[in-house]
Simulated assay, not measured.
Amino acid sequence: MLGKIIRSLALFLLVVFAVPALAQTTTDPAATTDPAATTAAATAGQVEVYAGAYILRLTNVSPRDGTFDVDMWVWFRWKGNSVNPVETFELANGIITNRLPNPQTMDGDFNYATARVQATVYHQFDVRRFPMDNHVIELEFEDANLTENQLIYIADTGTSLDPGVSVAGWDVALLEPSVKSHVYDTDYGMHATGESAAVYSRFTLPVSLERTSYGVLFKSFWISLLSVVLGLLAFLVKADDLDARFGMGVGSIFAASANSFVISDSLPQTTMVTLAEQINLIAVGVIFLSVFISIWSLRLRYKEQEDASLALDRWAMLILGVVYVALNVLVMLVDLS
């Protein structure tokens, strides 16, 4: 009887302790999956595409319209047959107006394809420092169909500018190409995907436009300069010679104002006071002060204080000339916008 009790107790202990221990040693294979293996599986379908470009022309660079045109060759190198990037790439910041792909060929182990592309590209030009403004314009390439999980760009070697590329008023230089992820915070209405955002690989070609000459400054403001000079020369005319004295000053104000309208028409709408507007405001302000001082000088002559009137004219011409030059140097050296 005692032996049966001992055997029953031993069987109970075996069930209580041995079975759970056995269950712990039999682990679900999915629970022990290597995280690195999981990452590799997620990117197994990702195709690396080497991309480059040779820019032939940059034309119609328009800060006012916020656009420029580009003519270039682009190329792609990749392995496998699951993608055809030369047919599916797009400019994220522009519109391709003409695409002429060449037949696909092989470059060693890589598929190789090129296309001649003409496009209009959009860019928000910062004109606060016009006409001494520098810019970095960009060409942003993305695949129109494949997300970053399916296709990722790599900047290829050989990307460059043709030596004949020029843009009037700027020196042109190609900067370092780059690749980054661009997130579109939308599922484009495809709710079944379960993704709240789409990530695409973006290949960017930056091109710098740098002012290296004061020629544009002179061409833009020679009328304003001439208007100020004429306004100051009016001080050499006697204040009681009304037609000549005040005609020169008032005419100078209208000339400077007209020049301001012409320059503003060539720039985009902005709430900031640009360098061009600052230079024109200085010109109009100096001419207005010259007219005000002419009235003061005329009143002195009416009081028969001719010597005081002549002295006022001489000092006003000198001081206003110095102030005009100094203020222009200040706004060109210091960004007051």
Rank of each mutant, 00 (worst) to 15 (best):
I95R: 14
T97I: 13
N98P: 00
N98C: 00
N98F: 06
R99A: 13
R99D: 01
R99E: 04
L100D: 14
L100F: 09
P101N: 04
P103K: 08
P103S: 08
Q104P: 00
T105A: 12
T105F: 01
M106R: 14
M106H: 06
D107A: 15
D107L: 14
G108I: 03
G108V: 08
F110A: 04
N111M: 05
N111H: 09
Y112R: 06
Y112N: 05
A113G: 01
T114K: 14
T114D: 04
T114S: 11
A115M: 07
R116A: 10
V117A: 03
Q118G: 06
A119Q: 06
A119K: 10
V121H: 10
Y122L: 11
Y122I: 03
Y122N: 11
H123G: 09
F125Y: 15
F125S: 10
V127T: 15
V127N: 10
V127E: 04
R128A: 14
R128K: 13
R129M: 14
R129V: 03
F130Y: 15
F130Q: 08
M132D: 05
D133T: 04
H135G: 09
V136G: 05
I137N: 11
I137F: 10
E140K: 15
E140Q: 15
E142Y: 01
E142T: 09
D143I: 06
D143G: 10
A144M: 06
N145R: 10
N145Y: 12
N149Y: 13
N149H: 11
N149S: 14
N149L: 15
L151H: 08
L151T: 07
L151D: 05
L151A: 07
D156S: 14
T159A: 07
S160F: 01
L161C: 02
D162Y: 02
D162S: 14
V165Y: 05
V165S: 06
S166F: 04
V167A: 13
V167N: 11
G169F: 08
G169P: 06
G169V: 06
W170S: 08
A173R: 11
A173M: 02
E176T: 12
P177K: 10
V179T: 14
V179L: 02
V179Q: 03
V179M: 02
K180Q: 13
S181L: 12
H182Q: 11
V183W: 01
Y184W: 05
D185A: 11
D185R: 07
D185W: 02
D187T: 01
Y188F: 15
M190E: 13
H191L: 03
T193M: 00
T193S: 07
G194A: 07
G194L: 06
G194H: 07
S196Q: 07
S196F: 04
A197N: 09
V199T: 15
V199S: 08
Y200F: 15
Y200P: 01
Y200R: 10
Y200S: 03
F203A: 07
P206C: 06
V207W: 10
S208H: 09
S208L: 09
S208F: 05
L209A: 12
L209H: 12
E210W: 00
E210D: 13
R211Q: 14
R211Y: 04
R211T: 15
R211E: 12
S213H: 11
S213I: 03
S213P: 05
Y214G: 11
